[in-house]
Each structure stands twice: as structure tokens, then as C-alpha cells.
Design a protein around this nucleic acid. Structure first.
Lengths: 308, 308
DNA sequence: AAAATAGTGTCTGTCAGACAGTATATC
DNA sequence: GATATACTGTCTGACAGACACTATTTT
């Protein structure tokens, strides 16, 4: 902060100031860590041989932690925890993510604050949502202590409009989002549902969310995950720079395109995609090897364009 | 939240759970309320007559409150205050804004969390920044109680790059933002300075802010205001829908364009602007009157396009 | 040769920027 | 008529979507 010398009066004031006389919430950080990873094939290994040419399918995954204590013991939650004195919420997010995954240099960005009074049965707890984008090839999950387990879940999201009403110049649109989670090793699958309500008049609009079905998730984490996912997609629709953080240092344009397609939820045309991201990447001399087809050149980010 | 019935065990757990045994911060909300208003002319009234044809100039203004108590007594701060139990941070922002200005239906959106440990001399206080866009013709400042005064300040922002270094594949760019504040009735003028540091390597980038000169502002509010302003501008560069919240229900396209220009900090070409925003507005039958030139049609928002 | 991915050239329609020009109020 | 704003038509170049086409590797 700035060079601000406190005056005598201010120092006196602060001596007698007792911050604990006001109501205070607890403050947590929840990290929605996304990665794009090879599909954990459910096919028999024999079939693999048939498809030796085919590149593996990818899927969008999110990191969840099984709660080892009450409340919601046994349910799955976003990694996160209470903020400590002397750390910013950003630092809390970094610390929590590193504790769970060992990933220390992920791209982290805040996407929302969750402060509904009744969101946590333990009391008044405000959560700060952070988005983390992780290179799927690099992550390692820490060996689980007994108290908790962490696992990557495939996430796919469906949205359908359930109603649209207009009266007195006020329009209300309700969308129902179904979040499908699938964890391959445990063959664990569940769905959570969140309703999004958009209200708008001639002058103003707002959106609210309500968890309709928690699935196997704890707290209001279905709502938080949906917000994280929407935030990720919005960013990807824009410049798309955020997607690069899901990639390793060097990557093929095809793998980058697939990451885009997974997040955007639609196919892109090869030529157009390459034109669009061309200024953001630099070709290297290297190529991938050992694939059953023409090898692709490896590219890396173009830092100038990225941050200029 | 969802229909989640707590189990017996969970109820038992919660009975013995004491949330106060952990460190907790205080939580505040700070509202950066912007409006576009007619310039409070410093010219003599006689000059006005000469320019009877000219439309009044507009300026971008921000609402500040003079602190009536320590710390930073007498300094200017964003309206805001502590969150209460049983309200979300959004509700806190709404409440605080209404208390200061009487504006109850402003467009409010969160733009950041400020949680550096040393940001408030009173202790560990986390602030949630909310952007409020206010129709400049409608606001009323509540008559100031003795304890505080609220006033609109013209805000203009300058940015200059002060350094750019690259070494070990790490580039550091430093920008210095000067925030100029001017309050017409009091003829009060000051400047605050905030340094933005962008660091980026091949793989990741991040930005940090530091208040270099507080001017007459309290706390880290120079940093918060800069973030609010950047957030507003980013939104305006995008769809631009946010700008409509600075306008009354009916407006001329020219006044809308001026609001855009003020926020974007550059002139726009009339024909192009009209084409761009055409789908967002609906022409009404009304025209403005009493101007020294051809009257303009009044337009209103097109709700379908806005929120569809 | 077959399979699969890698990568390019070009047409088309849309849209933003630039600018010239016309229209209509008040004084 | 002078002044100031209101509003429109059209050229241009950039770019996104669509699609056809060529290239290169492994088995």
C-alpha cells in the first residue's frame, strides 16, 4: 500500500478499536480446477490396437474432493478452505490447490462470490470462487490421506429452457442446467441440477441461481461449479487466451483446437481455427512422434501477443 | 438452496461446532457508483447565452463519501460498509448505495475482491467491490448528516507505461495510472496514482496493483476505483450493454453515444455507432424539445435483444 | 495402398471504419 | 441565413464461416 503515515489521533483511535465487536463471517475459498485430459478408456485394451491410428478422445475434467468430516461427510466438494489471517484470498486459493494437487503455478482467477446467508449449515460463511486451469498432462494428485480423497471427474453440462413468462413488462426466463459428473476409477456417476432465473424489465436485468438437485455434491457447490463453468466458457468465447492455460508448454494445434471445442461445446473448422489463433502461437522446430499418421508440428505461446 | 435434509449425525456435529474458534475477517462492500452527468459549468452564466445552441458537455462522475470517523477521517472513500449477518454481499451493496444516494434500482455487479492483509489499518478486512451504474439525471444525494458528506467527483484517468523489462524469459511491464478527481461545488481537486505491474513468462501472466499516491482517498480505494473503472471500460468495449444503465428510460442516440465515448475514452463515428446499437434500441414517437437545433428522436432499450 | 491426421487456398457474407452528403430545428 | 445537431448511403478492408483440396506419415 501507499506511504501513508497514520496521525497521532488515528493511532489513538486504533488502540481502542475492537474489530471483534461486529458480526463477522468466516471466509473460504473454493477452487474450481479444470483440466482437459485423455479419456480414461472404458474399452477393452484389445480394441485399442484396432484404433492405433486414432488420437485419444479428450474430456473436460474438474477436481473434486470427498469430504472427510461433517457437514456433508462423504459428499464431493470443490477443494478449498478457510482463509488465514495474513493471506489474500488469492493466496488461499493457491495454497489450497497446491495442497490438493501439487500444482503450484496454475492460472488462477476469481469468478464470483457466494454469500447467501443460508449457504452453509455451519453458519455465516462467505466463499470466494477461483477458477484454476491446469495442464492435464502435468497434474499429480497427492496421495490421499485418510481424511480425504481427491479425484478428477468428467464434467458435461446440459441446459434447457423450462419456462419463459412475460407480464407487467417484466420477463422471467428459467433455464435448468444439468451437470453430469463421472469418475472413471470409481465408476461413480451423478447429476446435479441448478436452475438459473433471469428477470428483466425495460430497465434492468438480473440472474439468480438455485440448486434444485445436489447430486453427490456438498453445500451449494453445484451452483459454484456452474458459475465457474459459465465463466470459463465466456472467456473462451472471447479472446480464448484462457484455453492455453489448459495446455502444456508445447502443443499441437489439433490438441489446442480440441481443448477449445470441449470448452465451447461445439466443433470448429480446422482452417478457420488455425487462422484465428495463428497470431497467438509460434511454431517450433519440433514435431510429435510415434503417431499412426503424419506428425504435427509443435507450437508454443507467443508471449508478446498474449500479454501486450 | 436445495432440499437437503441434515442427517442426525450432522445435526449433532453442528451442535458442538463453534465457528468462532477460527480466525475470521470483517467483510465490507465498497460501491463504485458511476454516472454520466452534465458538466457543472465553470463558465459565467453570460457565456451560456452565447452557446444556447450547444448541448452541455458531459462528464464521467463517481460518488465519494467524506469519512466522518477514524481511520482516514476527512479523506474521501467509496460508499460502503460492513456486511450484516443474513444478507449477501450483493444486498449489502444495495443497502449501502441506497443509504447514500436513495437510488434503489441501480445496476450492480461485482468486479473484484480486495483482500491484501495490510489494506485496512483496523485489521483483517476483506472488501467486495461492486460497480453501480446510475442514471445521472435521476440521482439525489441524501441530505448529509453531520457525520458524513457524499459528493460526485469528475473522474478522468491517464495511463502511461513507465517501464518494460525482459530477462530470463520473464517480462515485466509497469503502467502508472493517474486518477484525477474534481468536485465542482467545493472546487476540490486531487490526483491519486496507482501502479499496475504485469508479469508474464512463457506460460503464465498476472497483474498486481499498488497505490503510489493516495491523493485525498482513504484506504486502498484508489486501487479499487481503478479496478472498477477498468472493469467498466472492458464491459463497454464488449457488447456495451452496460452503458445503457447510465441512461434514463428514454434517451437520444446522441446522448447514448456520448456516454459510450466518455467511458471508452475516444470519439466514435456517428453512422457506425448508430448501426452498431440499432438492434439494442427501439424508436419512440417522442422527440426532445427546446434545443437550439433539429430535435432528436427518443429511443428506449429493446428488452428482447438485451436479455435474450 | 489405406487410414488417419496435418495443413492450405479461396469464396462469400457480415460488419466495422471512414467519409460524404442530406435534413431540420432555433435564433 | 447561420448554426448546430440529426440522420443516411455507400465504399472499403478485415475477418469469420464454409468447403474443397493437397501433403505426409505409419502400418
Amino acid at each position: 500500500m501507499a506511504k501513508y503515515a497514520l496521525s497521532k489521533k488515528e493511532k489513538e483511535f486504533l488502540k481502542t478499536y475492537d474489530i471483534t465487536e461486529f458480526d463477522r463471517p468466516s471466509v473460504t475459498t473454493d477452487v474450481a480446477a479444470f483440466a482437459v485430459m485423455n479419456e480414461l478408456s472404458t474399452e477393452a485394451p484389445s480394441e485399442k490396437k484396432l484404433n492405433y491410428r486414432k488420437d485419444p478422445e479428450r474430456e473436460l475434467q474438474i477436481l473434486l474432493v470427498k469430504r472427510g468430516s461433517y457437514p456433508f461427510k462423504g459428499k464431493w466438494a470443490l477443494p478449498g478452505g478457510f482463509s488465514k489471517k495474513q493471506e489474500s484470498t488469492h493466496e488461499t486459493a493457491l495454497r489450497e490447490l497446491e495442497e490438493e494437487t501439487g500444482v503450484a503455478d496454475a492460472y488462477l482467477r476469481p469468478f464470483g462470490v457466494f454469500s447467501k446467508p443460508e449457504r452453509d449449515p455451519r453458519g455465516w460463511i462467505i466463499s470466494h470462487g477461483y477458477l484454476a486451469l491446469i495442464d492435464g498432462g502435468k497434474y499429480r494428485l497427492h496421495a490421499g490421506a485418510d481424511a480425504w480423497e481427491a479425484a478428477w471427474f468428467r464434467l458435461s453440462v446440459e441446459c434447457k429452457e423450462v419456462s419463459k413468462k412475460a407480464k407487467h413488462g417484466m420477463t422471467v426466463v428459467e433455464n435448468l442446467y444439468a451437470l453430469h459428473f463421472y469418475q472413471a476409477e470409481r465408476d461413480l456417476e451423478f447429476t446435479a441440477k441448478v436452475q438459473e432465473t433471469k428477470r428483466f424489465s425495460e430497465l434492468h436485468g438480473n440472474m439468480t441461481y438455485e440448486v434444485v438437485d445436489m447430486g453427490e455434491l456438498a453445500f451449494d457447490h453445484a451452483e459454484i461449479i456452474l458459475n465457474a463453468w459459465q465463466s470459463l466458457r465466456r472467456e473462451a468465447e472471447g479472446s480464448g487466451k484462457i484455453i492455453f492455460d489448459l495446455m502444456p508448454e508445447k502443443f499441437t494445434l489439433n490438441s489446442l483446437q480440441r481443448a477449445f471445442e470441449l470448452v465451447l461445446g461445439r466443433k470448429l473448422l480446422v482452417a478457420n481455427f488455425r487462422r484465428k489463433i495463428a497470431p497467438l502461437v509460434i511454431e517450433t522446430e519440433e514435431e510429435i512422434t510415434g503417431v499412426g499418421h503424419r506428425p504435427a508440428k509443435l507450437y508454443r505461446r507467443n508471449p508478446e501477443e498474449f500479454f501486450g
